[in-house]
Amino acid sequence: MLPRPLDAWRGASAKSREQWRLAALLVAPALVLMGIFVFYPALQTIRLSFYKWDGISPEMGDFVGFKTFSRATDNYPFSQAIKNSLLWGVVGLFVPTIIGLVAAALVEDTNLRPKPLFRFAFFVPYFFSMAVAAALFTRVYDPSYGMINQVIHALGFTDVKPQWLGDGRIAIYAAMGVFVWHETAFCYIVFTAAIQQIDRSLYDAAKVDGASEVQVFRYITIPSVRDVATFVMTIMLIVGLTPFAVVFPLTTPGLGGPYYSTEILPTLIFKKARMGYNASEAAALGVILLILVIGIVSAFLWFRERTAPKD
């Protein structure tokens, strides 16, 4: 009749019992905090997505099953959000990570001087928070006085005037540009740390064997930073699937514009939950986002695990 942990407790050694007590003490504060602010609301989201509720009426509405899901997904903004989120995930996974890795390898594995200057240069974007970077880029992208168009103009292309944030065909890439600009710095600094830890004798041995720089990068650097790369790519994937801090400053309060070209799931959720009274739809979109992120990140980690070299 007794639950198994109690049996286990009785049979446990003094050391185990003491460890259990300490574990309870160490785990409890964090678990309570996460319980209140992560797990409970996450479970509520799943529940809420099956009910009809505007988020403000004192009483929650009827159980409607999957109806909220079909309402939340049968429209153009949603398909744009999914498309953009997936694209952004792919960009997050590869672009800042690859640029960061290549830059770190170029600076660390060669005799460039002064190294601190180059390190500083690649890390500069991270001094700004992502949201501030995006707010600054509203100016960088301005069609008339913006930095980019001014440079284009100064180079002599006087009739070229891209509407970076106004043209629906390029706005999403402009937004991703801010993301890449900012996050590459993070990838760069972590890869720098990882490359510095690589045993120097490996490089020397490769040189003796007559390996080229590219071969050294391919056969020594990349395999050595594999675990770090998995960590960085996972973070970039998660951030890339929810880059709200970029899209918000670029398009607020008309989030996701122009004409839904920069819509992502988080902007849709923010609009439903915070700019209108569609709590249920926001919850349904939240569940979809949850499934998307868990699915993609798990698939990525599974793939990394499967392709890991056996040692």
Partner: peptide
């Protein structure tokens, strides 16, 4: 409301 306003402006 939000849905109409968003459709109106973005559209």
């Amino acid at each position: 409301p939000q849905n109409s306003q968003d459709a109106y402006q973005q559209g």
